[in-house]
Design a protein around this nucleic acid. Structure first.
Lengths: 218, 218, 218, 218
DNA sequence: TATGAATGAGCATTCATTCAT
DNA sequence: AATGAATGAATGCTCATTCAT
C-alpha cells in the first residue's frame, strides 16, 4: 500500500518500519491505543514525534499494519490446519496450538486486538477485523459441530456458547503469557486442551457431580 | 464517601447520581474510558458537560464510583460463599455462579474492569483494584488447591494456570453476555461449569486422546 | 440603585447585605478579585452561590459597592480636611492621618483598590475609580505645591514624583497593617510623617550627605 | 533547569523563549496573572495557544521563569552591594539605586511580583519567593539597624516600620515608572533618597512642627 | 532521514449566572 | 430568603498532524 499524496518511506527501509511497528505495538499493548501518544512511540524509538510520519501515514495506519501482519500470519497457520483434512478433535487441538503460537510470536498484537477490536470495527479502515472475526467463528464453530456430529464432542453443550468460552479462553491468555517464560506455547496449549477437553474435575463412576448444584439455586 | 470541600450533589439526589453513573458506565464500557468524553456522557444524560460536575468531582471519580459499587457487591456475594464452609467443588461452583450473576447485574462495570484495570492501578485513586485483585486470586487459588488436596480436582494441572484460565474465561463473558438474553446467568454458569469441570470431549473413550497430539509437534 | 429587572433584595435587609459585602471584601482582598469564586464567598456566608444573587446583581456589583462605600467615606474625611483652610503642612499631615484611618476601617477595601483598580477602570462600571483618582491627585499635588510656595516643603523636589512616592507610601501600608495590632492608625501616621517630613538620616551640620553618592554612578 | 520528560524547547531557541516570556510578562503585569489567558499571550506572540506548550510546561512555569530571572539578577546586584563593605548609609543608597535599576530592567516582573507574590507562595513551585523575601528583609533590616547603631540613621524610628516603608515605596514605583521616560533609574533613586533621607519638609525651622497635630485627635 | 516549530481541533474542568420551587 | 439543578462560555492543556529545512 505505497504512496498516496506524500511519498512516505520509500518502500525501502522496511527494516526500520518493522522496528518502529514493534515499539509501537508494545506501547499500544501496554498503555492502550487511545492512551498511547505518538510522542511516546517516538521517544521509545529515539526520534521526534513528527519523524514517524516519514514512515507512516498516521497513528491509525501503524495500528492497521500491526494488526494486519498478525492476522495474516495467524490465518496462514489456521488455513494450513483447516485444509489438512484432520478429524474435528485433532483440528481443535491444532487450532489451539496455533493460537498459542500466535500469542507467543505476536503477543502485543494479540493484546491490542483483544482490547481495541470492538471499537475499531466501526471504522472503515478496520473492517478487515470483522471479516477475520467472521471467518474465525466459522472455522471454530464448524469444527465443534463436526465434532459433535461424529461424537468426539459432547452433544449436550450449546456449541455457540462453547465456542465463545473456548475462543476467549485461548486469546485472553495473551494478557498474562510472557514469551520465554516458564512454559512454551505448546506446553500451555497442552494444559489448556487437557482442561477444556477433559475438565478439571476428578472423574469417577457416579454421575452425581455431572449435574452441578446450580440448578437448585435459581 | 463524602468529598473534600465541595458539598457536590447535596448527598441527597442519589437517584440522579446512580442514573448518571449508569449512563456513564455504559459509555465507558462501549467506547473505552479514555476515548469517552464527558460531553458524550452528558449528551446521553440530556445535560451539558459542565453540569456533570454538579454531581461528580471528575471523570475519574465517576469511574471510581462505578468500579467500587461493582466490587463491593461482588465481594458481598463472594464472601458469603467463602464463609459458608462448603466443599471446594461446591465453593467453586458457587463462585462461578456468583460471578455470572455479577456480570448480569453489572455488565458495563465488569467490562470496564476488564479493559481498564491494568492501566488504572498505576493511580493512587485506583489502588483498591489491586487489593481486590489480590484477594480475588487468593480466594480462587485456595479453592482450587483445597480441591486438589481432597481429590475433587485433578492433581496433574498447574493450579496457577488453571486459576487464570478459569478467571479469564468467566469474566471475559461480560464482553458478549447480554442481560435479558437467551440464557439466565445461572444457565450460563451451568454450561460453563459443565465444560470446565467435565470437559467438552466425549468420555469413556480410549485414553489415547487424553494426551493431545501436540507433543509430536514441538 | 434599586431594581432593574429582578427584584433583588427588597431594599430592606441592608444589614445582611453589609455582612455579605464584608465577607466578600475579605476574600477579595486575601485571594484577589479574579481568583475569588462566588462559591467561596457564599461558603463563608453559609449559603449557596446562587443565593447571593438574591442580594446582589453580580460579582462585579459586589465589588463596586465595596469600593464605593470605601471611597465615599474616604472623601468625606478628605473633604473635611481640605475645606478646613489649614496650612499645606498641616493639611498634608491631616490627609496622611485620615488615610491611615481609612486603612484602619476599610483595610480589605483598600487592599482591593490597590490590587485591582488598574484593571477595573477599563470597565464603565468602575469609571468612578478614575474620577476619584483624579480628584485625589489634585488634592495631594496642590497641597504639595502650596507647601513649596510657602516654603514649608523643599523646593528642590519634583512634586509629581514626590506625590507618587507619598501616595504609594501611605496606601501600600494596607498590605501589612492589621487593625488592633501594635500601632493605632494615628501612631503609624506619626511615624510615617516623621520619616517623610524629616527623613530617616541623622541631621548634622555638614551638608556633605545631602548629595547622595548616586551621582557618581550614572 | 532541565525539565521532566518532555525535552520541550530543545534547549536551543532560548531567544524565542525569552521573547515569549517577555510578551507574557507584559500581559501578566498589565492584566494580572489569573486574568491572563494563555490565548492572550499566544495572540501577542502571533501564535496559537497550544504552541506555547512547545516552549513551556505550563502557564505557571512561564511565571516561575519570569520571576526567577528577575530575582536572580536582582540578587546578583544586591549581593555585590552587600559584600562591598560599605557604610550603612552608602549601602542603603546603593540598594535603593539597584532596586530602581531592577525596576528599570524588569518592570513587568516587578509588577507581577508585587501583585501576585502573596498568593503564589502558597504553591510549592513558588516557595523560592518566600526565601527571597526573607533574605531581602534581612538585608534591609540589618542595614537600617547598623545605620542606627553608628548614628547614621535616626534612633527614634521603629526599624521594622521603616523597613516596610522603604521597601514598599521603592517597589511600588514599578507601577508608575516607565523605562525610557523622563527620568533614569538613577535620577529617580536620587530623588527618592533625598526624600527618604532628609525629608520633604524645609529644615531648620522651629521644632514645633516636628510633633504632628495627630496627638490631639486620638 | 529526520528536526523544529507550529497548527487546530478537542478535552476535562471551572465558574458566574439563572430560575423554578 | 434560600436551594437545587442546570447553563454556557471560557480556560489551561494535549495531541495527532503538517511542512519547510
Amino acid at each position: 500500500m505505497p504512496t498516496k499524496k506524500k511519498p512516505l518511506a520509500p518502500v525501502a527501509a522496511p527494516a526500520r518500519r518493522r522496528e518502529l511497528l514493534d515499539k509501537a505495538a508494545n506501547v499500544f499493548a501496554a498503555v492502550g491505543y487511545t492512551a498511547t501518544t505518538v510522542r511516546r512511540i517516538a521517544d521509545d524509538a529515539g526520534m521526534l514525534a513528527g519523524s514517524l510520519y516519514y514512515y507512516f501515514e498516521s497513528k491509525d495506519a501503524m495500528l492497521e499494519e500491526i494488526l494486519r501482519t498478525f492476522l495474516d500470519e495467524l490465518w496462514e497457520a489456521y488455513d494450513a490446519v483447516l485444509d489438512a483434512g484432520l478429524s474435528p478433535r485433532v483440528t481443535f487441538e491444532a487450532l489451539v496450538v496455533e493460537s498459542f503460537r500466535a500469542i507467543d510470536r505476536h503477543r502485543p498484537a494479540v493484546e491490542i486486538y483483544q482490547n481495541e477490536a470492538k471499537q475499531l470495527v466501526a471504522q472503515d479502515r478496520f473492517l478487515f477485523l470483522d471479516a477475520s472475526q467472521t471467518k474465525f467463528e466459522k472455522a471454530w464453530l464448524s469444527t465443534l459441530e463436526r465434532g459433535v456430529a461424529v461424537k468426539e464432542f459432547r452433544a449436550d453443550l450449546d456449541t455457540r456458547v462453547t465456542y465463545r468460552f473456548v475462543r476467549d479462553t485461548v486469546w485472553v491468555a495473551a494478557s498474562w503469557y510472557r514469551p520465554n517464560g516458564r512454559y512454551s506455547p505448546e506446553e500451555i496449549a497442552r494444559q489448556y486442551l487437557s482442561m477444556v477437553l477433559d475438565g478439571i474435575a476428578v472423574r469417577d463412576e457416579q454421575q452425581a457431580h455431572a449435574e452441578p448444584h446450580t440448578r437448585s439455586r435459581t
